[in-house]
Design a protein around this nucleic acid. Structure first.
Ligand SMILES: [Mn+2]
Ligand SMILES: [Mn+2]
Ligand SMILES: [Mn+2]
Ligand SMILES: [Mn+2]
Lengths: 226, 226
DNA sequence: ATAAATTTTTAGACAAATCTAATTTTGATC
DNA sequence: GATCAAAATTAGATTTGTCTAAAAATTTAT
């Protein structure tokens, strides 16, 4: 029954995405509590939904060891991420939104149910590989583009020329900080000095005079060596 | 309380739109039964929702005389229609959908909640005045463009050159019939003969040889004299 | 190994939106 | 104005997704 239509509720989709994200980050099954934390719900609600998803064959659950997506569940989650990132890209590139404004809208748009809207959007934008935050957009088969050796700025050695390719934290607060410092995707920079005291780094760009970036900022900026 | 956020549920929005459409067509209040018919629900469900909308000040209800939108309710309904038609226009003009494919998608997209997405879409498309079916797109103040003397083909006298500006029925079935006859918005045609027997009309276009259109088709084609 | 802390589940309730079946209300008709 | 058919409402149930509070299960620490 309904093996074809592949139609899940908005809530189910959000849980699948949350389970994907949580187990991605921790590299293990997602705990009931962690899922609840991510979705701002209560653990008891998660228990109910996990049971439902489990019966649908979308997740495997071993209590106290975490929830994992099945292949089918991962496929669904990946498609939702694809839609989310394609919409973010559309909003920034074509409707002139700023990169710190699009997430909430994409949270809604990603649930639009259509067999081919996603693919048409993808074609319209000429198959973008990364979203406005530098996150890879999976293709229609769920394959993520390789980030080609990107690393957090915190791991880059001194005196190496790099350019920004993405952010690990794409909260409006962080993105606004970056905007305030004129740091955006593509910006080239070099680490001039590191301070052992707090792991902060002094960086120079083409335009700005040197600026001091604290550890947390460095960890959340993804760069590539040029 | 919540006079500002102006946030209604998807269901409320669908009811408001249905009430707008039904009372528009009948030029009087929408009966509980008619609303139920339009939304494919039951009258008892309508009773409940009308009560809710009434308490919110969006409709006035006089039992057995119909439901009417208040000014506030009409404003909301108009904005939903605006979003619906803008999305349809986007899908056809930019994502290469056909005009018979976009309605269901727009039914979903119209509920995306955003302060300015609609306006940006409008700007992106250069403020279109009509959707792919020839229906007027209200502007951000809820003002509908005048259709400039459009009338159903059934009311056009013989030997008058007209062009198609819209359809009154935009069901996929009707639109596919039109596509099959190569009739689309902009097509120029003249009524050559009328048959009293069944009110059918023989029309000629630039390209096709003469064809016979039955009464129902003529009633649902909107045209303008050139 | 026992106790403590944490995690998870259960039980019961609730809000939103719907349904069916029964009942009430009303406008229209004779 | 009484009657009748249509329209509308009520009552009670259902589904989905959520919550609180309490109980149970399991891991972790002593
Ligand atoms: Mn996002
Ligand atoms: Mn993103
Ligand atoms: Mn439509
Ligand atoms: Mn339309």
């Amino acid at each position: 029954m309904n093996l074809l239509a592949s139609s899940h509720t908005r809530s189910e989709e959000n849980y699948l995405k949350a389970i994907y994200a949580v187990s991605q980050k921790a590299k293990k099954g997602a705990s009931t509590t962690a899922i609840a934390g991510r979705l701002q719900t209560k653990a008891s609600s998660v228990t109910d939904m996990v049971k439902k998803l489990s019966e649908k064959g979308l997740v495997d659950h071993r209590p106290y060891h975490g929830v994992r997506l099945t292949d089918q569940g991962r496929k669904v989650a990946t498609q939702i991420i694809r839609r989310h990132r394609l919409w973010e890209t559309f909003l920034v590139n074509h409707l002139n939104y700023r990169w710190d404004e699009v997430h909430e809208l994409a949270e809604q748009l990603e649930h639009i149910r259509s067999h081919d809207l996603t693919d048409r959007l993808d074609t319209f934008m000429d198959h973008p590989k990364f979203d406005p935050h530098g996150d890879p957009i999976p293709d229609r088969n769920g394959h993520f583009a390789d980030n080609g050796g990107a690393m957090p700025l915190s791991q880059v050695p001194k005196d190496t020329l790099v350019h920004i390719v993405g952010v690990r934290d794409s909260s409006p607060a962080f993105l606004k900080l970056l905007d305030g410092l004129s740091l955006k995707i593509g910006t080239q920079l070099t680490i001039m000095r590191r301070f052992e005291f707090d792991n902060s780094a002094e960086v120079s760009t083409r335009f700005n005079s040197a600026m001091l970036l604290n550890e947390r900022v460095c960890e959340n900026l993804t760069v590539k060596v040029l």
